[in-house]
Design a protein around this nucleic acid. Structure first.
Lengths: 306, 306
DNA sequence: TATGTTAATGCCGAAAAAGTATCAAAGGTG
DNA sequence: CACCTTTGATACTTTTTCGGCATTAACATA
């Protein structure tokens, strides 16, 4: 995150942000045609750009097993990094513009990726409207990184699925949401509106993230045990999007926060879980000794939002 | 770092990795003509690409004042982020390829940015030649992040300018190098081969990094105090490259590790410092309980390299 | 005022990307 | 098994972007 010489050894200039966006679209749809529609381009153009990207990287990113597309191991590794790069690019542009226009203050928000599906986008937008001159930055991290960033004062608030318990921190519950099961449309369960976890004991589970443990995947395993079974873990993915993509092609089912339903995905059905207390809570966490007035303003936005 | 939805709100598709590379070249040279030569393109093409980038970001990145080019505040903010994005892109491609080819193991190296000028590139290259199937990843961090990453086992070894003292860590000095003063060619001192710090008491110092403190900047201040004066800090920059660029246009002088001399920069001269013990040491740090055989192999490379 | 330096502009050709049409391979169906 | 559907790849054309060269504009300096 600091300086690094530029000149040497950044060879394959054939990667490009556009191609990374295209790659992510295909990775998320696992379908060239639909990905092309989503990107607003024709399918042949997409096929070729992916081919160019694969050549630049020096490895196949997708297995085209006739009429089905899967991520290769390499593609799976690339997905979260590509998202990260695109996010950082957007953030870099934002913060550069803010700095150029003479930002009055800065306010840094850290969050777990899954928070982007629920309240976070609205909160950020509202705060930015109220404080256009403040350079609000966003940073996706896991729980361990969030805790460290709070301690180091690298961020002002964290949105996490735990309180990151620490005597120095204060926290507040922002959103309690139920978990839902995501199943392929081809599954017999897809007809139902809801299901009990116990009925999924024989199914293949796709869990995430693979690292770092303990993670959301362990919470899901815990709920299954409470329901009286150990889930069959067919696959572990690095992130939620990859898990959803695998569900959509019938590789198994996954358990996700209900807010994910907002991101419409082809080929999957969402089932309410009948089990009680199968929920996940999003917390806002901050340092008690943070006296920034922006923190108070931000908390006000969060509270009035609810 | 983790998942994040892609579809919405990543608007200005006009940024592009190529333009970021161009931007960095201009930022480092502070001169369109020389930057164009370095990039192997003509100057008008460069001017226009920078203009496109500025339009995409929505702010001027350079002040073109009287045939001198300066970074605006926005440009200064963008520099380290652009470097970070390019580095991450290269790393993403590397790790995806390694994963696709079935990496036998992974080995993560963290480092402070200034280490890229000395032994680190050679070590990495040598290790990769010896272990082509190992996915060696690189990550630039500051000291606080390095310590945390070691504790969290996010990296296997750290290269830092301190031992990151911790009972769990072992460390080894890799390189002790003198500091040198960097002055504009226009400075009267530029004629000399060396100088005593005390003779710089009246000069404007450009220090880095601005964050996080304590940092290398504080070390430099400490050396000056030992030499009997408090330096006049004309400017603090976010990174070494920006500091060097400011030196080259006459904004002041800076104190940097001697290995920086390898990156040839126009308009500056490097002066040895006569003062004794004005040095900086690069340490390799790792966890005592890390039993990875790759760690031992890496240490062997480091030792035989010396 | 003349001259030199340096970034911006105009214009044109080259390269990259996207569109349309079409093909080929795999799976499903009667 | 013939036939149809689905889906990604290929061929070819059009559009857009990028870069080069020549020139200009803005300063600075002699």
């Amino acid at each position: 995150m600091t300086e690094l010489r530029t000149e040497n050894s950044m060879q394959p200039t054939n990667i490009g942000l556009r191609r990374l966006r295209y790659f992510l679209a295909v990775a998320e749809e696992l379908h060239f045609g639909r990905a092309a529609v989503r990107l607003g381009i024709a399918q042949p153009a997409l096929s070729r750009q992916i081919a160019v990207l694969e050549a630049a990287i020096g490895a196949l990113l997708f297995n085209r097993v006739r009429s089905k597309v899967f991520l290769t191991k390499g593609g799976e590794v690339l997905v979260p990094q590509a998202r990260d790069i695109l996010l950082r690019t957007a953030e870099a542009a934002r913060s550069a513009r803010a700095a150029a226009q003479g930002a009055v203050g800065t306010f840094a928000v850290g969050f777990v990726g899954s928070a982007t599906y629920s309240v976070l986008p609205g909160l950020v937008q509202q705060f930015r409207e109220m404080h256009p001159a403040v350079d609000l930055t966003l940073n996706a991290m896991n729980n361990a990184e969030l805790r460290r960033a709070l301690i180091d004062r690298g961020i002002d608030v964290a949105f996490a699925r735990s309180r990151l318990d620490d005597g120095e921190f204060a926290s507040e519950s922002v959103l309690i949401e139920p978990l839902v099961a995501v199943v392929p449309l081809s599954s017999p369960h897809a007809q139902n509106m809801s299901i009990a976890l116990a009925n999924l004991a024989k199914e293949n589970f796709i869990l995430y993230p693979r690292h770092p443990r303990p993670s959301f995947a362990d919470d899901v395993i815990g709920f299954c045990r409470t329901a009286g079974f150990n889930p069959i873990v067919a696959q572990e993915t690095m992130d939620l999007q990859t898990a959803m993509a695998l569900v959509s092609v019938g590789a198994g089912l996954s358990i996700v926060p209900a807010s994910i339903k907002q991101s419409h995905r082809h080929g999957v059905a969402y089932l309410r879980l009948d089990d009680a207390d199968v929920t996940t809570t999003l917390f806002m966490v901050w340092r008690r000794d943070n006296r920034s007035p922006l923190l108070n303003n931000f908390r006000t936005v969060v509270r009035t939002r609810k």
